[in-house]
Design a protein around this nucleic acid. Structure first.
Lengths: 99, 99
DNA sequence: CGTATACACAACCATATGGTTGTAGGTCAG
DNA sequence: CTGACCTACAACCATATGGTTGTGTATACG
């Protein structure tokens, strides 16, 4: 999941498809690489659950998935939780004048 | 930055060092890999600004950097912003009974 | 029907990544 | 000073990654 977000092109695809749906080839035209490369990026994002694909005729519309972003968000919050514990403990330490 | 967070070992190191500082070798003992491997992970995290190192005698204490986490957090918020726009627009669309 | 479009997928390549071992530099204890 | 310990760094290896081109399949159009 973080790995899927670790590539700039993929982050851009997520950003654009959160705004509105795009077909894979329409997306591909926006990047300086082959269609196949973009299609692979979309596949990575889809496996990570960051986008969903919906077929419309011969096109596959790619839409960003806000719920997945929320997941990543929460994962970072989890990490920050540890940080707050640490600050709390430091505060306690300072308060007791142990230094 | 997301790349640095994309590895499970590195996320774990961040989690542990947000809690409190650890020397590199102490950290290394906690993982099923060589000291050098862990040391490389720490180097990656340090380059990404996710941890800082502070020397104490012959040990180098690794501490998580909450500010960097905040940065990642904000980046995700940026992405979610686009999503809220989308929802707003959909709401407007539904409100006008264009469907 | 044939042709063009949109997508999926495989094969391939260069480079990045995560791991290893080995070597070398500081620092502490005796 | 010597030896043990902590760290840094380079060389090396297997695999993953991001890119390419080519092939196959489904859909739309004339």
């Amino acid at each position: 999941m973080f790995h899927a977000l670790a590539d700039a092109t993929r982050r851009d695809i997520v950003r654009r498809t959160l705004d509105r749906s795009f077909s894979v080839s329409t997306l591909a035209r926006g990047y300086p690489m082959s269609f196949a490369a973009v299609q692979k990026h979309v596949a990575v994002l889809e496996r990570a659950g960051l986008v969903t694909k919906q077929r419309r005729g011969r096109e596959h519309l790619v839409a960003g998935n806000p719920a997945a972003l929320r997941t990543a968000h929460d994962a970072l919050d989890q990490l920050e939780l540890a940080w707050r514990d640490r600050v709390t403990r430091m505060d306690r330490l300072l308060a007791t004048d142990d230094l």
